[in-house]
């Protein structure tokens, strides 16, 4: 497993670079960010907040950059990411409330979209040139429609007019967020429309990728041999699909990496309390501590998605394991 160790090393290095850049950026900005921030808050500032902000950006502390850097790491290990200016709450607790919503909604829809697209693509690739190919232009059409627009249309038709789905939010506000059945059911129900938006507007990519790879793979000798061996049809398809799915796995890891940042518009349209919504708030209010926290989350999602994809890829493709 030396390949895995090497990859892990690369990811750790990347994480270190990202964190260090995150530390350096506000300190390299011209002027005094603290004063700008305090100016933005219009007098709602307590002395503790000023001190917290100063500490975060290393202004007025008269500390060397190096000791600030060490302090920054120390804070990071204690999950102390500073205080959000716009929300007047610790960034870590704000993230703790929003990240699960995004990971839950966008993560689940991306996984579903990938699975659905891959299965449909496998079938279309196997039976290429039949009437089923008509699925392709339809799926591509929905891919081409901007998904925030598509989401708005869905909201208008199915939530506002037909009232099949609840309109906004992530759960019925009358329920307390807690692990009991009524709440979970409510979350699932509220999540349907945004999930459908994500799936419908992204599934075409998975279908196309898998179908095209299947068409190529089916032409390979080992698939012909599988037929010649008299293997059952499902086994022959599995021979081809197992090889054809490999590029889709790489793309899937990229998609998972974009999970947090790509969710912005869907969350806005459906007023979903996820990271996308939070990111907008942070940008609008120039809430640097919050922005930095979100960037860290995005960095770690991308890195862990890649790591997971590497592990899966290695499990699926033995040829990778020994490559230098």
């Amino acid at each position: 497993m030396t390949t895995l160790a090497r990859r892990l090393g690369v990811y750790l290095l990347t994480a270190w670079v990202a964190i260090t850049v995150n530390f350096l950026l506000p300190r390299m900005m011209p002027g005094n960010p603290v004063r700008i921030l305090i100016g933005k808050i219009h007098g709602r500032v307590t002395p503790q907040m000023v001190r917290a902000i100063e500490e975060q950006f290393g202004v007025g502390l008269h500390q060397g950059l190096w000791s600030q850097y060490l302090h920054y790491w120390d804070q990071l290990f204690h999950l102390n990411l500073g205080v959000s200016i716009a929300l007047s709450a610790p960034v870590s607790s704000v993230l703790k409330q929003t990240v699960p919503w995004t990971v839950g909604l966008i993560g689940a829809s991306t996984v579903l979209s990938f699975l659905l697209g891959t299965f449909v693509g496998t079938y279309l690739g196997w039976r290429r040139g039949t009437v089923f190919d008509a699925v392709l232009p339809v799926a591509t059409f929905f891919q081409a429609v901007p998904y925030f627009f598509f989401g708005t249309v869905l909201l208008l038709v199915f939530a506002s007019h037909l009232r099949w789905f609840p309109e906004l939010g992530a759960y019925n506000e009358a329920l307390t967020p807690h692990w009991h059945w009524a709440f979970v059911a409510s979350v699932l129900r509220y999540g349907q429309l945004p999930a459908i938006t994500v799936i419908v507007s992204s599934v075409a990519g998975w279908i196309m990728g898998m179908r095209n790879m299947m068409v190529t793979t089916v032409a390979e000798d080992f698939v012909l041999m599988a037929v010649a061996k008299g293997l059952p049809k499902r086994k022959v398809v599995a021979y081809a699909a197992r090889n054809a799915v490999l590029p889709s796995i790489s793309n899937f890891s990229l998609a998972m990496g974009l999970l947090v940042s790509g969710a912005l518009l869907v969350e806005l349209v459906f007023n979903y309390p996820g990271v996308g919504d939070l990111l907008l708030t942070a940008v609008q209010n120039e809430d640097y501590p919050l922005l930095q926290g979100i960037f860290l989350v995005i960095t770690f999602t991308v890195l862990s998605a890649n790591l997971i994809a590497d592990v899966v890829y290695m499990a699926l493709d033995p040829r990778i394991r020994r490559e230098a």
């Binding site: 390979e220 000798d221 080992f222 012909l224 041999m225 599988a226 037929v227 010649a228 061996k229 008299g230 293997l231 086994k235 021979y239 197992r242 090889n243 699926l316 493709d317 033995p318 040829r319």
Partner: peptide
């Protein structure tokens, strides 16, 4: 009939063997 009565060997064994499965599995499938 396939393979139990008529089997084949192709020119390129590298292409004729499924690259992602072990040799044992090729036998096992048959």
């Amino acid at each position: 009939i396939r393979w139990s009565e008529i089997s084949m060997v192709l020119q390129s064994a590298l292409n004729a063997l499924n690259p992602v499965v072990r040799i044992g599995k090729e036998f096992d499938d048959i």
